[in-house]
């Protein structure tokens, strides 16, 4: 687990996270993430073989509500904060070639 973090790997993670980082940011990130990962490696000291993972602080499951129709956000309200719309839809750059 404690293999050193390479610039290349950090770039791959940045791609996964959809984050465009400058060369300087990538450099700094590699050093800082490396240090943080070294620190969190202390968890490997602990034997957790028989411990169930705890995903939530208060473990409730299957929370249901009544299946009733309620008003949702009106379309103009939902579009109001969008960087680009045509008044009916959110607009994005073309995804599929003609």
């Amino acid at each position: 687990m404690a293999e050193p973090l390479s610039l290349d790997k950090v770039q791959r993670v940045a791609n996964l996270a959809r984050l465009k980082l400058s060369t300087d940011e990538l450099q700094a990130m590699t050093t800082q993430l490396g240090r943080i990962l070294d620190y969190v490696d202390r968890l490997s000291e602990l034997d957790t073989e028989d411990v169930a993972p705890m995903a939530h602080a208060v473990e409730v499951s299957n929370v249901f509500r009544e299946d009733v129709v309620v008003d949702s956000l009106p379309r103009p309200e939902a579009l109001k904060n969008a960087p680009k719309t045509d008044g009916r839809f959110f607009l994005v750059p073309q995804v599929i070639e003609h």
Partner: peptide, 15 residues
Amino acid sequence: DAYYLKALKVRRLIR
């Protein structure tokens, strides 16, 4: 497994 799942397990120990 090594990071996220491990952290969830130690979270239970803390609780």
